[in-house]
Design a protein around this nucleic acid. Structure first.
Lengths: 230, 230
DNA sequence: GCCTTTTGCGACAGTATTGTAACAGCAAGG
DNA sequence: CCTTGCTGTTACAATACTGTCGCAAAAGGC
C-alpha cells in the first residue's frame, strides 16, 4: 500500500551532486522529494506542490535563495511552510540577514547530513505531526499517529485499521473533498482492485464509530464528488 | 456520470512511448487526454475538441510543432489555449525562440515528469482554476474547488452538482456570455443529449440558491444569446 | 398597442446516488 | 476445531437531483 500522503520536501540546490545526496537521504527517511535547481523552478514547484518543507540553498542562479524565501514568506498561503536555509561558510556573514528574511532554520555547509535531517524533522513536527508521528486534531477529535489511537471528547474510539487510515487521510487536510477513487488510492493502495462502493461502507463505519459516544457527524458527503471532513 | 468538467489536455508527440507515458500520468492526475501523433492530426483535434491545454513536441513529421503553435496562436478562438513546448536537448535552439513562437512554456527533454506536470497545472490554473482546486471569487461570492464549497457573504450555500459546475464555469470567466449549447458542452458533457431549455431550469435553480440568503441576482440573462455572470 | 419570440419557473415523475444492514470470506489466535 | 474481528460485496431503502412539460411573464419588433 502507498503510504498515506507522504510529506513533501522541496530541495532547491543548483549543485547536482549535493542535491541528489540530500534527496537520497530524504527519500530513505520516507519523505517525498521535489527537486529544483534554481529559484525560478523553485517558485513554480512551491505553488504547484505546496511542499511541507523547503530546503533552500542560499546561492542560486537568477532568482536567489533569499528572494525565494522572501516571496514564500510574504504570501499568506505559503507563509506557514518551514524553510531551512543552506549556505557556504564563506557566506556566513549573512547569517543574521538570512533569519531576517524569515527562514525558520539555518544550516552552514559543509553540514552533517544527520544534523540536517534532525532539523528537518524538527521543523516538520510543527507542521505535519502525523507524518512524523505526532497528533492531528480536528474539532474535538484527536488522532495520535504513534499510538494509533483516536480520541473524541476524551473518550477513546475504537476504529479498525481502514477506518483509522481513512480518518487520518481526512485529518491531513480538513475540508478537502476526496473522490472515492482518490481514497482508494490513498487508503487501500494504488493497485488494489476494490469496488468504489466499498468506500461508502467504510465511511458509514467510520461515522458510526465517531458518533458512538455522541457528537455531530463530522464527515460531509459531497454528492457527485466524494467525502470530506468538516 | 463521468465528471464532464474535466480539463482536456492534448498531447502531440510522435514517439508512442513518450506519448503514452505522458498520457498515463495526465489521466492519473484526473485530466482527460486527447492524443495526436503529428501536426495535421493535432490541428484537427484542436478544432474538434478545443482542449484546455496543449503539450506540443517541437519536432513532428509533416506539420512541425512550431507551425502548429503559430496557427493556434494566430486564431482568435484558440489563442487563449496555453501551449507547452517540448524539445530534445539536441534541438535546443534555445528557450527564447521557443517562447517567441508564442508558446507559454518550454520544457527540454529529457524532462522530469513531476516538473512537467507542475508546469501543466500552473498553466491550467490560469485558464481553469476551478479544475485544479483553486478558489474563485466574484463580488461577495466565493467558490472553493478543493472543499467544493460556495460562500456568499459568509454563508455557506447549498448547491447541487450541476449548479456547482455551472457556477464554477461562470466564475472562471466573469462577464463572459455563454450560449446554452456551450454550457451544455461544458457543464453537462460533450455527447449528452438534453434539451437546451434544461439549462434555463438549472439557471433558475442556481439563482434561487444564490439569493436564498438575500443579495442581488448575479446572473444576467442575455436575450437571444445565453447567460453570464455579472 | 398587439403579436411573436424568448425566458422564468412550479410541478412532477424518473433516475442516479448514497446509507446501511446483512452476509460470507479470511486471517489470527486460541 | 471454534472464536473474534475485520473486510468487501450485495441488495434494497431512502434521498437528492435531473430533465421535461406547460403555462405565465417578459422582451422585442413593428
Amino acid at each position: 500500500m502507498a503510504a498515506p500522503e507522504l510529506p513533501v520536501v522541496l530541495v532547491v540546490e543548483d549543485e547536482p551532486a549535493q542535491r541528489e545526496v540530500l534527496a537520497y537521504n530524504l527519500e530513505a527517511e520516507g519523505f517525498r522529494v521535489a527537486r529544483a535547481e534554481n529559484g525560478e523552478e523553485a517558485l513554480l514547484l512551491i505553488e504547484e506542490e505546496t511542499p511541507d518543507l523547503i530546503v533552500l540553498d542560499w546561492m542560486l542562479p537568477s532568482v536567489s535563495g533569499i528572494e525565494v524565501c522572501r516571496q514564500v514568506k510574504s504570501k499568506s498561503d505559503t507563509r506557514g511552510i518551514p524553510i531551512i536555509m543552506l549556505s557556504a561558510r564563506s557566506e556566513e556573514v549573512d547569517r543574521v540577514r538570512g533569519l531576517e528574511t524569515g527562514a525558520d532554520d539555518y544550516v552552514v555547509k559543509p553540514y552533517s547530513i544527520v544534523e540536517l535531517m534532525a532539523r528537518i524533522r524538527a521543523q516538520l513536527r510543527r507542521v505535519r505531526p502525523a507524518a512524523v508521528g505526532g497528533t492531528l486534531e480536528f474539532g474535538d477529535i484527536r488522532l495520535d499517529a504513534e499510538s494509533h489511537r483516536v480520541y473524541r471528547a476524551g473518550e477513546v474510539l475504537k476504529l479498525g485499521p481502514t477506518e483509522f487510515r481513512l480518518l487520518a487521510t481526512f485529518m491531513e487536510k480538513p475540508g478537502r473533498v476526496w473522490s472515492r477513487e482518490q481514497l482508494l488510492d490513498r487508503v487501500w493502495g494504488r493497485d488494489i482492485y476494490v469496488d468504489t462502493r466499498t468506500v461508502d461502507v467504510h465511511i458509514g463505519r467510520l461515522r458510526k464509530a465517531l458518533c458512538r459516544h455522541g457528537g455531530e457527524d463530522p464527515v460531509r458527503t459531497v454528492r457527485g464528488a466524494g467525502y470530506a471532513l468538516g
